[in-house]
Design a protein around this nucleic acid. Sequence first.
RNA 1: GCGCUCUUAGCUCAGCUGGUUAGAGCGUCCGCCUCACACGCGGAAGGUCAGGGGUUCGAGUCCCUUAGAGCGCACCA
Length: 723
Amino acid sequence: MPDKFLSPYDSTATESRIYAEWEKSGLFNPDECVKQGFTKEDAATYSIVLPPPNVTGRLHMGHALMLAIEDTVVRYKRMRGLRTLWIPGTDHAAIATQSVVEKQLKKEEDKSRHDLGRAGLLERIEQFAAESHDTITKQVKTMGASLDWSREAFTLDETRSRAVRTVFKQMYDAGLIYRGHRIVNWDPKGQTTISDDEIVYEERAAKLYTFKYSKDFPIAIATTRPETKVGDVAVAVHPDDVRYKEFVGKEYDAVFCDVPIHIKIVADKEVDPAFGTGAVGLTPAHSKVDWDMADRHSLSHDTVVINEYAKMTVAGRLADKKATEARDIVVQWLTSEGLLEKEEDIKQNIATAERTGGIIEPLPKLQWFVDVNKEVPERSKTLKELMLEPVRSGEIKIIPEHFEKTYFHWIENLRDWCISRQIWYGHRIPAWYRSTDTHGKPSGEIAVGEAPEGEGWVQDEDTLDTWFSSGLWTFSTLGWPEKTRELQDYHPTDLLETGHDILFFWVARMILMTEFTLGTIPFKTVYLHGLVRDAQGRKMSKSLGNNMDPLDITAKFGADAARMALIVGNTPGTDTRISEDKVKGYKHFANKLWNIARFVLDNAQGANLQAPLTPADTELLTACDTLVQEVTKDIEEYRVYMAAEKLYHYAWHELADKILEESKPIFAGADEEVKASRKVLLVTLFDRTLRLLHPFIPFVTEEIWQSMPTKDAQFLMVAKWPS
RNA sequence: GCGCUCUUAGCUCAGCUGGUUAGAGCGUCCGCCUCACACGCGGAAGGUCAGGGGUUCGAGUCCCUUAGAGCGCACCA
């Protein structure tokens, strides 16, 4: 028995050394497993693509959980002899990364992006992204993740960029990507559009004002945003509302707070007669609902009164005022004119931008969209339907199942996806414009995909929503659009494991993109984990200061302990709580195994592994078979939380507490046959326990197994799973 | 407003398609430095499975309902 077993288990000394050895062996790469004879060349494949962490800094415990679950499954599959591929990568995360760098720039140098210019800012971001990448990679390795680093990808590298341009062009050619002038979610703080999914609604106190445009105007309207009323073109009422029936179709002129307006009364079923006065002032350019209603009544959308900086663009007393200031001015004016009838306190859900917190200003803009309701050529289905179908049919299985309902609900309410962003970091939209042709005549030409030949082409200034490139992740990481062997062997991938908070952002987009591009599903199973919360059940956040850094935790207790603490009892879709005490408990578990090793290796020295087992020992071996079957089934069905708990229980309370204890008198006794049998039993049971536990706590099991007489492979990592 | 989930021991949670005396970890209490381990060992207490109703031979597990908590989507101008 090596001397190291005489002192308690030291995870810090062991883990980094072992990871380096694994990495050096090349066995994270399935090709290498085949080459070195651990995996059969024609073995079935199993693949997972790592959800790429954003290069916005460092990993949090949620990432650690993701790595723990995925690595557990991957190690299990590898031990079962499958050609197992787990691809690492990082996400440029466009707006998220740019806003972190911009904040830093503001804080440290009091500069804005415009001070640096596009190239200058990009350089800064790339430097930041590179640093983040290195930190993240180090953290990932610390967790013990057996990722094939030779295949590492980045959402913004050359291969992935090519995939983005290619898909963009294909969707454009299919008529599914279009450029349109529509109301978008404008973030005045971030100075960019955002998609519907990037909006966070916050409940705030607001005032509902009831007033008339002028003394002569027959109907009072109610609004929380009086400043927008200078952009009104109509008042809508419900067609059955007897109060207003006589006015429908009539038109009025007024001067509202110095701004001349022309109002038509229209009837529309969407109006709720019970809210406010039952009459709505329509501001088509500054409200999505109003825009649609204006469309139905052939009203103009062109009256824009607020600009990108949320400032008023009208003349008069409101000129150049911030929207919030303009509100007060309008209210003051209404009061002095005697037009204000009522002012009520109400609660309102206000739309804010997820990344910047800016209050969304709906504005009409020319942007790029993905049409989700148009038929995909040759599929005779819309993208929406293509997203729904594989989940409906069960071709894609979501764990836990109830998220399928949430998924359907989301898709049913889905609108066209705005994919252009007015930020600089990301995939530049692969569209080029030329206003005049080669003969100098106005042409309005557009080229999409790769940069066109010829003079005078100007590329679109905007970049793509980051989820556009992440949507391609399962196949872009496998080398698409090249027809690679990897793509053939490993796609569709087997498992997509991620947080339930990005079911829509990402999972849905991957299904959309893959169905469109390859006509297949991107993955067979979706495993959604919950949030990792602190001991009190609070979200971990910077402001609360309750963040746990995976590096600190692993340094203190070991990656094995951290992994086990994150996995045991953590059912999919449910939030979990983590505390240092919990992790400490599993550090003790690693040490327990260490001590079992000491006992077994000490007492089973010189064991004859061929010695026959006594009936009692046979029975214990059979009991272990049952455990093997149960654990195998649990992992196959992605109940890793259950498998981990059973193994913990078996190792500690069965093997150590009962079997080791009852072995003591046997070894102290005189019956050599029983002793010989017991030696074999202990070695066999412990060997199996180590194999079964390896996917969960890879380091300590590997370290012990290297000293086991049953060692039959270079690493436990590629040893055979018991059956 | 629409939808989803949760409510099981002091705490955090399991309990798969309904089936023997409802489990784990932590905590608590009692006793132990017993030659693998005090990062430990042995033992104990502790639950009318939120309330009510129903289906069933049988329900923590299925259905209805009430109450509380959390989450998602939509959104009222």
